[in-house]
């Protein structure tokens, strides 16, 4: 390779690399640092880790914020509840998305491309607007309650908005495309002759599904589940707009510590513990993506 080629390569790699180091990785160093500080009423609202006390430098890092989070039941419950809500939403999403992805993958062209577009299209419209749409539907004076009342199915409006139920609906609704796409990608690659061969040999439909279709679409299911589960665990907008005051989710707790209590060190510690919790699923997603983009495999866009 020529010297010019080498320099060009260095430039092509270096520019985005430097940007991400500075604006993606470096920030976490500061989150860790500030999570070890104490809150104080000042600008910025946290203490320095290294301070001059009585004429000599003193190390002032403290693990107090972490001890506080781990000893307070409220935070523990928020973490556990976030994991529960994210896991169940992921499951509901999967149950709805899998048959949908199958139906799209098995549809003839050009209908298949239109269906695919129809699945992606909502994820291009504002996330906030899609969550907001459910506020109008689920409210006590909302469209759903008015429909149920006018049909005589209920006597008084059901409490739907500001409940955990609304949070589940919101997550499944907004994250559904992220589940459908990877599953569709693995299903459309599947050689249907395998299923037909199994049917010819007398396997019942459920058997074909359990021992051929499901194993061959495992990668898509895994990718979809991680794409829903990880962001849903730290979700803020959905529990804030659709959940009740008692819907404890860690994203909401972090937001409140930061914006309402202005306790930056505790908010930082909340973020670090959330990151630690999500590290394993993130690693899994990274390995899955790396395997999927290995030579010879095609990647699903987005």
């Amino acid at each position: 390779m020529t010297a010019f080629g080498r320099r060009l390569r260095l430039l092509i790699t270096g520019i985005p690399f430097a940007w991400l180091l500075l604006f993606f990785l470096l920030p976490f160093v500061f989150v860790v640092k500030i999570s070890l500080a104490e809150a104080q009423i000042a600008i910025p609202p946290y203490t320095a880790l290294l301070a001059r006390v009585d004429g000599h430098w003193q190390w002032q890092a403290t693990l107090e914020n972490y001890a506080f989070l781990l000893s307070d039941r409220l935070y523990l419950l928020a973490y556990l509840n976030s994991l529960k809500i994210a896991a169940l939403s992921t499951l509901f999403c999967l149950l709805l998305a899998y048959p949908l992805a199958w139906a799209i993958a098995r549809a003839p062209q050009p209908a298949r491309n239109v269906y695919l577009l129809l699945v992606v299209l909502p994820s291009w419209t504002s996330f906030l607007i899609r969550v907001y749409a459910w506020m109008g539907i689920l409210g006590s004076n909302g469209y759903l309650n008015r429909l149920l009342l006018s049909l005589g199915l209920v006597d008084s409006p059901l409490p739907l908005l500001r409940t955990d139920f609304a949070v589940y609906v919101g997550i499944v609704y907004t994250y559904l495309p992220f589940m459908v796409l990877p599953i569709y990608t693995s299903l459309v690659r599947l050689d249907y002759r395998l299923v037909e061969a199994a049917r010819d040999l007398g396997a019942p439909a459920w058997r074909c599904f359990a021992s051929i279709v499901l194993p061959l679409s495992r990668a898509g299911v895994l990718a979809g589940c991680l794409l829903v589960f990880i962001p849903a665990t730290g979700e803020f907008v959905i529990p804030e707009l659709l959940g009740g005051a008692d819907t404890l989710m860690i994203g909401k707790v972090l937001w409140q510590e930061f914006f309402n209590n202005r306790d930056w060190p505790v908010a930082s510690a909340v973020a670090i513990l959330l990151l630690a919790l999500l590290l394993l699923p993130m690693l899994l997603y990274y390995r899955q993506q790396a395997a999927d983009s290995a030579p010879g495999r095609t990647v699903a866009g987005g």
Binding site: F24, P231, T233, E235, L254, L274, Y285, Y286
Partner: peptide, 9 residues
């Protein structure tokens, strides 16, 4: 990582 990172973080 940014593809799945919770936005609050």
């Amino acid at each position: 990582a940014p593809l799945v990172m919770p936005e609050v973080i």
